[in-house]
């Protein structure tokens, strides 16, 4: 899922300067799971912003709304009525950066701002702790590495074995991070496939990652 975290209140207050009536929109997708932008976090953030603005002597009216998902245009249309009826001057989106972009494209008369920093595609390590697992390179080859991704999980993104900073199974960049090459080697050894790691492989084709402009996936059989 997409992992995000809330921006500092100070930064959000700077964005909201000049706005007195704002709709704070949460998302019930990934950011609810990582406790950054669901119903509850939207409530806490709205309260914090109201408190901060009252402390500044410039009270702000913040309404709260949480959409099922902000990465689907049909859910974004749920905002049409409140925006038309309530006269908000700004929408603050507590979703990954897809949400505020959809809102900005749909409504040209209101300012749109992100409440969250979108961090990475990740998974849960333990309760309320998340780590990056995928860099969305667009050409997955983890089968060559025992099912583990060195591009994302090696701090240096090495594809041909560990660096000299691997020590006791940990990474020199951050000691709490496992050396993924240590894990890859151990796993390949257990699978009896260490020889596969010795095979020469051509340089990775990164064109699926950077080139060609905005990436797009189309399922022709399902398009309407």
């Amino acid at each position: 899922m997409i992992i995000a975290e809330r921006k500092p209140i100070k930064e959000l207050l700077e964005m909201l300067a000049g706005h007195d009536k704002v709709l704070l929109v949460g998302c019930k997708g990934c950011v609810t799971v990582c406790n950054a932008g669901g119903v509850k976090e939207v409530g806490v953030l709205a309260s914090a912003l109201r408190i901060a603005r009252r402390r500044q002597g410039r009270p702000i009216e913040i309404d709260e709304m949480t959409l099922d998902r902000q990465c689907e245009p049909e859910f974004i249309s749920w905002l049409e009525e409140p925006i038309r009826e309530k006269g908000y001057t700004a929408i603050m989106s507590a979703a990954c950066s897809v949400g505020p972009q959809y809102i900005a494209e749909r409504f040209d008369k209101v300012a749109v701002m992100p409440a969250l920093n979108t961090k990475f595609i990740g998974g849960t390590l333990e309760h309320e702790v998340w780590a990056e697992f995928c860099r969305a390179c667009g050409n997955c080859g983890i089968h060559n590495f025992g099912g583990l991704c060195p591009i994302t999980r090696c701090s240096k993104g090495l594809l041909h074995g560990p660096c000299a900073g691997s020590s006791g199974g940990k990474c020199e960049v951050r000691p709490e991070v496992d050396c993924i090459w240590h894990l890859i080697y151990t796993r390949m050894k257990n699978l009896g496939q260490v020889e596969k790691l010795k095979a020469l492989k051509p340089a990775k084709d990164w064109s699926s990652y950077w080139s060609g402009g905005v990436r797009r996936v189309v399922r022709e059989d399902l398009t309407l």
């Binding site: 209140i9 806490v44 408190i51 901060a52």
Partner: peptide
Amino acid sequence: RILNEAGV
């Protein structure tokens, strides 16, 4: 922490 950020 939130109150600190909000100036309370």
